[in-house]
Amino acid sequence: MTPDVFLFWFLALTTVLAALGVIISANPIYSVLSLVMTMVGVAAIFVTLGAYFLAGVQLIVYAGAVLVLFVMVLMLFDLKHEIHAFTRGPVTGAIKIAAVGLLGGMIVGAIALSANSLMKTENNGIQTVIEGDSTKALGKLLFSQYLFGFEALGVLLLVVAVGAVALARAKGGTHAQH
């Protein structure tokens, strides 16, 4: 077993377990801490895939900013007792879990069936697995071919920032009573 293989299984296991922790733990604080763990695991998986810059951005954006907001909001709410953490009724819950299992089985089955063709593309196709530091190439691509998307996202972020502030500052929330 080479270090790479060990690393993959270790990270995959940690990430999936942490993701399960998000949906299983009844206390939302533990949910969000598990989600942090998942994000760190995903960042590490990005590293094993050679996307170093993305791994850093993943940590900065998700773990460093978005999830801190989640934690802070949850702590400020201070939900003492989480009643009805899960969906109502054992029957609907079972149906939903079954639906998720079915979807998961279908996706995994589809991947397993198409594994041969996927491997083929890898072996003969367009090829060249990206090695080493690809950050510069990434930047060039982002600021040339995908410039419009980049700018559009900038506008989106501005709108969202203004909107979020307006929403959170509104006195009566969304249901203001005048």
Binding site: V16, A19, V32, E82, H84, G93, G104, V108
Partner: peptide, 18 residues
């Protein structure tokens, strides 16, 4: 796919908006 299904199960099963 596994991570996606975890997320989907969360959306279907949990009731806390956050």
């Amino acid at each position: 796919a596994l991570l996606f299904c975890c997320g989907m199960a969360g959306v279907l099963l949990r009731r806390n908006a956050i």
